Amino acid sequence: MAGPLSGITIVEFAGIGPGPFCGMMLADHGAEVIRIDRADGRRGGTTPANTKDVLARGRRSIALNLKSEKGVDLARNLCGKADGIIEGFRPGVMERLGLGPEVLLAHNPKLVYGRMTGWGQTGPYAQAAGHDINYIALAGALHHFGRAGEKPTPPINMVGDFGGGGMMLAFGMVSALLHVANGGEGQVIDAAMTDGTAVLMGMIQGMRNMGVWSDERGANMLDTGAHYYDTYETADGKYISIGSIEPQFYAELRRLAGLEEDAEFDRQMDRSAWSSLAGKLADVFRGKTRDEWCAIMEHSDVCFAPVLSLAEAPEHPHNKTRGTFVEIGGSLQPAPAPRFDQTQSVVPKPAVESGHDTDAILYELGFDADACTELRGAGAIA
Rank of each mutant, 00 (worst) to 15 (best):
P306K: 13
Q121K: 10
V346C: 12
G377Q: 12
F21E: 05
G166A: 07
G183A: 10
V103D: 03
L253N: 06
A2F: 09
A148S: 12
A14R: 07
A278Y: 09
D301T: 15
G163V: 03
D236A: 06
A148C: 11
P101W: 00
S345Y: 01
V174E: 02
F13P: 09
G186F: 03
T9Y: 05
T197E: 10
D132S: 04
G166R: 05
A14L: 05
F325V: 07
W274E: 06
G30Y: 01
V112E: 03
H318W: 08
V159K: 01
L178C: 01
I16L: 15
M210Q: 12
A369L: 14
D236N: 14
L362I: 05
I328E: 08
T47C: 10
E315P: 02
L105W: 03
D215N: 13
G202W: 08
D223W: 00
V284P: 02
D37L: 01
T289N: 09
M158N: 11
P314H: 08
N209I: 12
R254H: 09
L375W: 00
M167H: 13
P154R: 11
Y125F: 14
Y113K: 02
A198F: 15
F145S: 09
G19E: 01
A126Y: 10
T231L: 13
P20L: 08
T153N: 14
G7F: 03
H179A: 14
D195P: 05
G211A: 12
A378N: 11
Q205M: 15
E12F: 02
G377F: 09
A27P: 05
T343P: 01
N157Q: 14
G19Y: 06
K67T: 11
G130C: 05
V93C: 04
K280Y: 13
T373V: 12
